[in-house]
């Protein structure tokens, strides 16, 4: 298969970037999208040119490192997977593919297609955990947890922090990411203890970092590689409302 690639090139965070066009030939349909970029890069190095930089690591859809916006969709045209799991059989032979980095004020471009997602770490640091320290915890089975709740919590916890939700949201909102973490803990007795403090701190940090506001377009859910549901956003709104209306300032 042959493809024409239009790729965003940007030397560093301060440089002004631009699109450049590349051609790749004889790509197998079983080749993954990132392997196709590897082939392009090998080719560029052979021609004594600079390769294209993009983030990637585990290449099995779990680390959340890969972050390409392909033909208007984060992680490309296939549903429910990351770009590293997507294969070229999803594209028509001879087609043009436009590859852009995640675009958001909170995710500045580092180089080419690499962006800085440390804003997500900062949101987690604001409260995305249970504040237990190592040791001195009760037996794992001391608190039974309804299977349905544990499963819902796991659904939310499956988030890989890739940022596709922010990338696809027309408002560059991080609500799906934040609500997934809030939900995971709000559903478990271990997380409930500090739920009020957590939701307020995480929302405040999210706002501070320049993410947009949610307008319920649900694009995030449609593009999430782990199919995280927007019901988590509703749950977070509920938690937030409860925390604000609660008598005591948390």
């Amino acid at each position: 298969m042959d493809f024409t690639l239009k790729i965003w090139k940007q030397a560093n965070s301060k440089a002004k970037g631009k699109f450049e066009t590349f051609k790749v030939k004889d790509i197998s349909a079983d080749c993954s999208f990132l392997e196709m970029l590897d082939i392009l890069n090998e080719d560029l190095i052979d021609k004594v040119q600079l390769p294209i930089n993009f983030d990637h690591d585990c290449r099995e859809g779990i680390c959340g490192m890969c972050s390409l916006y392909i033909n208007g969709r984060p992680h490309g045209p296939d549903q429910g997977i990351t770009v590293c799991q997507m294969h070229m059989r999803n594209f028509k032979n001879g087609s043009k593919i436009v590859i852009e980095p995640w675009r958001s004020k909170a995710f500045p471009v580092i180089k080419d297609l690499m962006v800085d997602r440390s804003a997500f770490d900062e949101i987690i640091q604001a409260g995305g955990y249970v504040s237990v320290t190592t040791g001195g915890v009760p037996d794992a089975n001391s608190i039974p947890i309804r299977k349905e709740l544990a499963d819902l919590s796991m659904d939310a916890a499956a988030c890989i922090g890739c940022g596709a939700c922010v990338a696809t949201c027309k408002n560059a909102s991080a609500m799906l990411f934040v609500s997934a973490k809030v939900s995971q803990f709000a559903l478990l007795p271990q997380g409930k203890v500090e739920a009020k403090r957590r939701v307020q701190a995480m929302v405040a940090k999210m706002d501070e970092l320049g993410f947009g506001n949610c307008t319920n377009t649900y694009a995030c859910e449609a593009e999430c590689p782990k199919n995280i549901s927007v019901s988590n956003i509703a749950r977070m709104n509920r938690e937030f409302l409860g925390a604000k209306l609660g008598a005591q300032k948390a």
Partner: peptide
């Protein structure tokens, strides 16, 4: 430790 941290193990 992990359960106390909110790790959603299968139940």
């Amino acid at each position: 430790q992990c359960v106390a941290q909110g790790v959603p193990f299968a139940r």
